[in-house]
């Protein structure tokens, strides 16, 4: 098919002189092709481990990240440059476009860590550390950790490098959310061994059969988060 269309183009060039511009699809998919360069085709991530998957993440979460990049709360020169001169409505549309993509997840890479580290990671993720004021990941990110609509992202299906880099960014202030910035507060209480263990365990988990974000949380959030609207809690 492709070959045929190229031959056809060649025909037009040779016979009709310089080709007229082709018509492109007037769609969101076409508009968002620029994102694929780093985030993979349709935002499904690539194998390089740094750029996160964006397909299927909750729309509210994606929208807040786009705003954070645009307004410099989250520092990434490339992202800020791409978003700097776009209005709220278009950013919202981008977020909803990627949130609406339901694509299969590749299996996780085999665990890179020894069992003791993974065990420690599991404990932090499931139970937190009450003595140090660290809530369990599950408490906010959902029982299955696939995120909660509309604002809380899932923690599975993300590479170890990306997860670790985010904690570094919260600790250094290069990733900030709307105040109160709950994740920055939690990241400040974690030590490098905690972060390594939790990220290693999370990155090794397969996606559950239903990878979609949960519709709501059974309990109110244990911490206050400026970027989470009240609708995240099931009433």
């Amino acid at each position: 098919m492709l070959r045929k269309s190229r031959l056809l183009t060649l025909f037009w060039v040779l016979v009709m002189g310089p080709a007229a511009a082709l018509a492109a699809e007037d769609s969101m998919a076409q508009r968002m092709l620029a994102c694929a360069a780093c985030h993979g085709a349709e935002g499904r991530a690539t194998g390089d481990g740094f750029y996160p998957r964006i397909a299927g993440k909750p729309a509210g979460y994606l929208y807040h990240q786009l705003l954070n990049f645009r307004e410099g709360r989250r520092l990434n020169a490339q992202m800020t440059y791409l978003l700097e001169r776009q209005g709220d409505a278009y950013l919202r549309e981008m977020a909803e476009y990627f949130a609406g993509l339901s694509l299969p997840y590749p299996p996780p890479r085999p665990p890179q860590a020894e069992p003791a580290r993974l065990q420690r990671g599991l404990q932090l993720v499931r139970q937190g550390d009450a003595a140090r004021g660290i809530p369990a990941c599950n408490d906010c990110h959902g029982e299955k950790m696939t995120g909660v609509l509309p604002d809380i992202p899932g923690l599975l299906g993300l590479p170890y490098d990306y997860l670790v880099a985010q904690f570094g960014a919260w600790r250094q202030g290069t990733r900030r959310g709307t105040a109160p910035d709950c994740m920055a507060a939690i990241a400040a209480k974690l030590n490098p061994e905690d972060i390594d263990a939790a990220a290693a365990w999370l990155a090794a988990q397969p996606m559950p059969a239903d990878p979609h974000p949960a519709p709501g949380l059974p309990r109110p959030l244990p911490v206050s988060c400026g970027s989470v609207s009240a609708t995240g809690v099931t009433r």
Binding site: P18, A21, L22, A23, A24, E25
Partner: peptide, 9 residues
């Protein structure tokens, strides 16, 4: 293929 572009993209 011939740098002719594809509008509007």
């Amino acid at each position: 293929d011939a740098g002719e572009g594809a509008l509007p993209a």
